[in-house]
C-alpha cells in the first residue's frame, strides 16, 4: 500500500493499539464474534465496489426509462439490476443519483466528514477525505475541476452535492460520443469511479 502522507510512528502505534484493544474487548464481552470484522470487511471489499456503479451507469446509458427511474427513485431502480445481495443495507437505502446533462455538471463531496455512496463506488479515495479538497471543492468547484483536468464550458452550471448519511449521492456521467452500438458490458468498462464522483468525464474510447 502506498503511504500518501508522512505519519509519525508513535501516533500510529497508539492508534493501532487502541483499535486492537477495542476489537479484542468487544469480542471478549461477546458484543461481536471473532470473525465479525473480517466478515464485514470481506463484504465491503468483494461486493461493494465501483463495479456496481459501472453497471448502473451502463444500464442508464442504454435505457432512457431506467435512467429516469434511477434519478427519481434510486434504490428502487438499482433493485431492478442483478447486483450483490445486501445492496439495500449498509446505507444503500440512501443512495441518490444525479445525472449530468448538457449544461449541467454534478460533483459529489462530503463537506463535514467522508460520507460516500459505498454500495456503488466502494470506499472513497484518500483525497476525498482531505480537508483541503473538501473545503475547496465546496468553495470553488470550477477551479478544482479545472485542476483535475475537467474543463467545462463557462456557461455549464456546476451543482455540488453534499453527501450525508441520509443522501449518498453519486453522478451518472454523460455517455461519450462514439459509443453507439456498444453493449452494456462494453460501456461499463468506460465508466470510472472518478466520473461517478463528478471529478472526471468519461472519455470517448480510442479507436482500435
Amino acid at each position: 500500500m502506498t503511504s500518501h502522507f508522512e505519519y509519525p510512528s508513535d501516533r500510529e502505534a497508539a492508534s493501532a493499539a487502541q483499535v486492537r484493544a477495542l476489537e479484542k474487548l468487544l469480542i471478549e464481552k461477546g458484543i461481536i464474534a471473532a470473525g465479525t470484522v473480517d466478515k464485514v470487511l470481506g463484504y465491503f471489499e468483494s461486493e461493494m465496489t465501483p463495479l456496481n456503479g459501472k453497471k448502473i451507469v451502463a444500464r442508464a446509458w442504454s435505457d432512457a426509462e431506467f435512467a429516469q427511474r434511477l434519478v427519481s427513485d434510486t434504490p428502487a431502480a438499482i433493485a431492478e439490476l442483478d447486483l450483490p445481495i445486501g445492496m439495500a443495507g449498509a446505507e444503500g437505502e440512501h443512495l441518490a443519483a444525479v445525472a449530468n446533462e448538457p449544461g449541467v455538471h454534478n460533483v459529489v463531496i462530503c463537506t463535514l466528514c467522508s460520507c460516500f455512496p459505498w454500495p456503488v463506488l466502494g470506499l472513497p479515495p484518500y483525497w476525498y477525505k482531505d480537508p483541503v479538497f473538501r473545503a475547496r471543492a465546496a468553495r470553488e468547484p470550477r477551479a478544482v475541476l479545472t485542476e483535475l483536468g475537467v474543463d467545462l464550458a463557462d456557461d455549464t452550471e456546476i451543482r455540488v452535492w453534499d453527501v450525508s448519511g441520509h443522501s449518498r449521492w453519486f453522478v451518472v456521467p454523460q455517455r461519450p460520443a462514439g459509443t453507439d452500438g456498444m453493449s452494456e458490458a462494453e460501456l461499463a468498462e468506460l465508466v470510472t469511479t472518478e466520473s461517478m464522483m463528478g471529478v472526471a468525464l468519461v472519455e470517448t474510447p480510442a479507436r482500435s
Partner: peptide
C-alpha cells in the same frame, strides 16, 4: 480508476 479501498 482506483477501485480498491484505500487504507495505509
Amino acid at each position: 480508476d482506483r477501485n480498491q479501498p484505500t487504507f495505509d
